[in-house]
Design a protein around this nucleic acid. Structure first.
Lengths: 336, 336
DNA sequence: CCTATTTATGTAAACGATTACATTCTTGCC
DNA sequence: GGCAAGAATGTAATCGTTTACATAAATAGG
């Protein structure tokens, strides 16, 4: 692979001049510049990113560490991150972290020297890991409890959103409302559960452990949860799934067992993934501007990168919006 | 941020020894090693990836260049790539390329020196761009016409899959089968269209341009296409959507206009995304092991990286499988 | 035609690691 | 105790860039 030296030699100039042509910094005689560009093209020369970042101390890359890459939520999140990052001239280095702290720390070390900042989502893990972030690496936490750690963070207003959805179900007259919980230990899941309970209590309804079914944020989990719920006696008349994927699985299970939605059981989800409106019946959900989370996070980390002086940890919350469709009894269809 | 020199100084050893501890290469006295690790921990030292790769000429990173990051297909593809890459100790640098050749070339240059190999998907673009790949960078093409270029490639058996689906529709007695085409200029889309036409011809049916509606691989596109199709007289009795997202949009439109699926119109998709089985009715589709594409691609590029000697371009095809569910009249439900 | 500016180019020192080779320190053996 | 062999550590070159500084070339002013 051609290096800057090869180009310099072929064009009979010094490496400095070649570098200048490629960085547009200083003035280079037009004729020289053209000659250098020609040589570079025939040699298929492209600057070596690693070497360049070694001295400029900029990689123009953001690390993105997510618990998973699968499904609509992460798809949209990555999309949002990418759009914003790209607009600012940054690339993204995506990685997935499995279980626990060591994995995450290992991933973070691996990113040292290859990224200018880090977007970290790790809703299952305490903030302890953050103590070992290589010093000087700007980090933004996504949907992750920051604990006492002094880092920026972006979280969804899970509590409020869940509460609104459940309040909506109550306002429709439902008294026995079940919840399909999110993954155990997950921060968003815990907050949504908290919102669910708060709404019940506010309405003077009883919080009943029997109506809180375990889930794992997957379609299959939602399906299984409904199978379990239908065995309850008396049955719930409404189900709040802690995310849309589970709600979709739930709808599928209800359909197969011949339970009419929303007449017999109403179903609400969370996230408002693009597909929600294409379900039958279209799924009521709590809209989260997922792409916005990504955009906000990128902006935050870029700010840290460009203004090294800390202004104290910023905590942003992304608000939610109740989207009522037919699965909770909205009468008319929404045209996509 | 701490460097290897800082660690060496604090631990009163040379940088070489520190390096050895972190690479496990040569023997270091246990006591010394421990002291170095302690110092490294308190200094929060992590090796600088860029500097390291400069001399080892390995970044342990794969570049992934996709036309989009949005939706189930790419989500699953990235997931498959990540799983395999990670198993082999590689990270992935994801980027999205918009329109045309210059964008792609620019992205490829940006990856120079930061990746050991490149996974490139660019179904809309001719293979011309590939001429400008920095020399010596192993590349694998995903779902992209390779043309005459001498690179590895992985493609889906679009033609066969589409043909099978349409043949299935024909075998159910359908004579007026419409297709919602994929994005214009897209390779997969073109092949699926070709398969559709071939199946019709093989069955002695007429290929009718009126029944070939433009689409763009999105739900909204599928929805709009159906609106247009329903205006046709006579109506088609079956619709083959070139991917599942469009099929889902199509189902939604049919439902809203009160057309029963599959009794009045049967619908088939392509890709078999996880959601297909959760639709109402569950969507018949052509299963593509999307994650396998990613895995195969990673293996191919890793092979090129580790065995620089070319063995000529490898072309792998990922086969498809017809999955019949109720949207084309399968009588029984499949349990998720 | 000579000097003072301005403009274009070259030289060489970083950046943070790895690693071949050189050197020093331990051992074990006679 | 002396010496050879082996183990542990150090020295310095290297990877491909950028960039401050030095130098050479071109231009202007007299």
């Amino acid at each position: 692979m051609a290096t800057i030296k090869d180009v310099a030699r072929e064009a009979s100039v010094s490496v400095a001049t070649v570098s200048r042509v490629f960085n547009g910094a200083a003035v280079v005689r037009e004729e020289t510049a053209r000659r250098i560009r020609d040589v570079a093209a025939t040699l298929r020369y492209a600057p070596h990113g690693g070497a360049r970042s070694l001295i400029t101390r900029r990689t123009h890359t953001l690390g993105v560490l997510l618990p998973d890459l699968y499904g609509d939520f992460f798809s949209e999140l990555i999309h949002g991150i990418d759009i914003t990052a790209r607009r600012e001239g940054y690339h993204i280095l995506v990685s997935r972290s499995w279980e626990g702290r060591t994995e995450i720390e290992e991933a973070m070390r691996a990113m040292k020297g290859r990224v200018d900042g880090l977007l970290l989502m790790s809703p299952d893990v305490d903030a302890e890991s953050l103590r070992n972030i290589p010093h000087g690496l700007p980090v933004v936490l996504l949907c992750t409890p920051a604990g006492g750690a002094s880092v920026d963070s972006i979280i969804i207003e899970n509590f409020r959103g869940a509460k609104e959805m459940v309040r909506h179900l109550i306002s429709l007259g439902h008294g026995r409302i079940a919840i399909i919980k999110g993954a155990a230990g997950n921060y968003d899941a815990a907050e949504r559960l908290r919102g669910y309970r708060a709404a019940l209590r506010d309405a003077g309804l009883q919080v009943d452990g029997e109506l809180e079914i375990d889930g794992d944020f997957t379609e299959a989990g939602g399906y299984a949860a409904v199978v379990e719920l239908l065995a309850r006696d008396p049955r719930p008349t409404a189900i709040f799934a802690a995310n849309d994927s589970m709600a979709i699985g739930a709808l599928s299970a209800l359909r197969e067992t011949g339970v009419r939605v929303p007449q017999e059981i109403a179903v609400g989800g969370f996230d408002d993934i693009p597909l929600a409106r294409y379900m039958d019946p279209p799924l009521s959900s709590v809209r989260v501007a997922i792409a916005d989370i990504g955009a906000l996070a990128v902006e935050a980390v870029l700010h840290s990168i460009n203004h090294k002086n800390g202004r104290g940890p910023q905590r942003k919350r992304v608000s939610t919006e109740l989207v009522i469709r037919r699965s909770t009894g909205a009468p008319y269809a929404e045209r996509p």
